[in-house]
Amino acid sequence: MKQTERMTQHPLTKYLRSERMPHIWCEGCGNGILLNSFLTALDELKVDLDKIVVVSGIGCIGRAAGYVNVDSFHTTHGRAIAFATGVKLANPDLQVVVISGDGDLFAIGGNHFIHAARRNIDIKVICANNFNYGMTGGQYGPTTPLEAWTTTTPYGNIEHPFNLVHLAAASGAVYVARWTALHVRRLKDSIKKSLQKEGFSFIEVISPCPTIFDRYNKRGTAVDVMKWFKLISNVKHGHDPAKTEITKSQIMVGEFVDVERPSYGRLLRDMTKKVQEKLKEKKAK
């Protein structure tokens, strides 16, 4: 490869549908960092790109599925996990990753999230949490902090937000982690870990939204927000997920859950084997 070619070719190009570029995301948005970490994880793990499916719902980050150069599906709003459940169970050889946002996964899609976690469906969920519905212009959502200003909380938000990692852990996820868009290397490592682990895993990525939410709430530029993440994030692996609520002064980050529990797919395959053996015995008699 010539020097100039190497300079113009991004090392992750082969993972992207470059004809779809430029992407729709704003400058300073955390979605690009999230996607980059995911693709780097695939690269480092040398994942078979013919055997991975990326599913997303609706929202800014929902477009991620269209950008990655693997089998991908952009579902209706909130239904990414339910769709992914069908894919994974119908073809267990596929690695199935859901990349979506806080509104998609936890408001309209909340029911699918808790039940997929409870069943321990072997899918990996990566959530970009930007605390609002950015794509539709900044309405409040299930993670919007109390008192925050959005276009539908003109007097300040009076709803209590979800603590996503607590919800994921309580619902039964076997791997739960939270990072901010600043923690690129740790995020990538978490994604790698979850891809190698059987069962339902959940990674929350706290993401800046400089054009909408951060501007409305006077958090400054994307760089200011990143500096703020650095200032208030506190790495505490293994911390009780119930005590990781995001506050104005602290974002607890780290790996909070890493446990073993048989996945739905495994239990289904074991049951099927037993039932079919019994049928064979019956037939032999």
């Binding site: 579902t75 209706t76 239904r79 069908g86 894919v87 119908a90």
Partner: peptide
């Protein structure tokens, strides 16, 4: 968990 998810899962399975 509901019929919304049911059909979503069925579409997913069909795509495999």
């Amino acid at each position: 968990e509901d019929e919304i998810g049911s059909l979503a899962a069925v579409i997913g399975a069909s795509y495999t």
